[in-house]
Design a protein around this nucleic acid. Sequence first.
DNA 1: ACATATGATTAATCTGATTATTCCGACAAT
DNA 2: ATTGTCGGAATAATCAGATTAATCATATGT
Lengths: 233, 233
Amino acid sequence: MITKISRNQYLSAFLQYLSHYSSEESERLPSLIELSQELGISVASIREQLEVARIMGLIEVRPRTGIQKLPYNFTKTLMTSVFYALENDKSAFEQISDLRKHLESAYWQEAASKLTDSDVGKLHEIIADAFHKLHRKPPQIPHEEHKRFHLLMYQKLNNPFVTGLLEAYWQAYEAMGLDVYADLQYLEQVWAFHLKTVEAIARGDIESGYKSFADHIDLISRRKQPSRASSFE
Amino acid sequence: MITKISRNQYLSAFLQYLSHYSSEESERLPSLIELSQELGISVASIREQLEVARIMGLIEVRPRTGIQKLPYNFTKTLMTSVFYALENDKSAFEQISDLRKHLESAYWQEAASKLTDSDVGKLHEIIADAFHKLHRKPPQIPHEEHKRFHLLMYQKLNNPFVTGLLEAYWQAYEAMGLDVYADLQYLEQVWAFHLKTVEAIARGDIESGYKSFADHIDLISRRKQPSRASSFE
DNA sequence: ACATATGATTAATCTGATTATTCCGACAAT
DNA sequence: ATTGTCGGAATAATCAGATTAATCATATGT
């Protein structure tokens, strides 16, 4: 085979090979030894590039099963870099949080206007679940609901880069240990805003929905650091 | 040594080691063989993790010089993922471009208000350079100026995640071959907006500066695809 | 002072051996 | 039929070591 795939100077041979590999479902890539022969690179070198693809969430690798291509994923790449940054500078979370606030704010109206009735129904369910958890005795932190609520809000943008950033934010949020933060009064307010927001969306009033949302974001910036020291587990 | 560094389940042993390595300048990490002994992992395995750190722009590796730690860099990580995404779906650039527009818009006022007089001076210089290039015979595309202008605008945010995203956008822009796009009339308009924007900032009128900027962004979305087919080289 | 050659150091690449996982199918027990 | 258990095959995971190539510092020559 003389024809060479056009070189993309930024991608390794394996990543190029992978990007052009037919992603027919349940199909898997050749074994490492075959790949080595096909690409003309030793197994050891391929494994170095393989590790990058794995970290980036582009493949799943298992003995016996081999290498499987996954749909494009922006989140995993972000997570690795973000967790590295947080590892010796926890204050970087403030910057990530700031980015997330601006992103959500900038996209809110477009995202909200694209939500279907079914989406709005799901949002209402999530809110109900959250209040249910909050009013239990003893109360529980509706973190999973909070995350699902926000991610669902921006799902219809259908922009993997935007949603990847938002997902990475929540991963970092959990890694910082903030998902067990338990100021119940604050959480009551948060979910009251969420309810107002969704009700506005439901009656097609994007403008006042945005206002409720903006108040919520405001709330976030006014919140002080939790007293509980956070750590990776 | 019994004490183990606390496990961060998302980071490889090498990335953890690297993140905690004193980043005294000009200092370099132990050689691969020494690292292998220190971490209790074979050289081949360390090299797999090393490759990830290299792709992420966290280290620089050369024979004889060895491994050097670099300051944290978000851009490189983004670029790898973005270029992979673009490799078999050029239309993803629209989504990246959309993300960039929203980000710049959301941060504009904060970024502009943090600019110093010196920054404004540099922006004026860039604008002058750009017009100089545009009015040459034959005219040149002031792409480098365009990129520097926008990145400088957001520099004072001091948020590596935001600036990383913006830098990655420009890298993608160039990779798509758009930096040679030559609608001179369009470019004249662009730089006229830039000039109005900076003049507003210079007299402290952030509000009308934002308006000029918003008009510029508007211009971008109205622009049609360039006829020239783009490709990686 | 400058260019050039030499040597030492380290990463880069490759090969091959061994080990560990995972999956699949066969067979048995319920 | 369903479930569970075991064994074997396929493949990645890990490792060790040899060889090659790149880079830098130093010495040497003009």
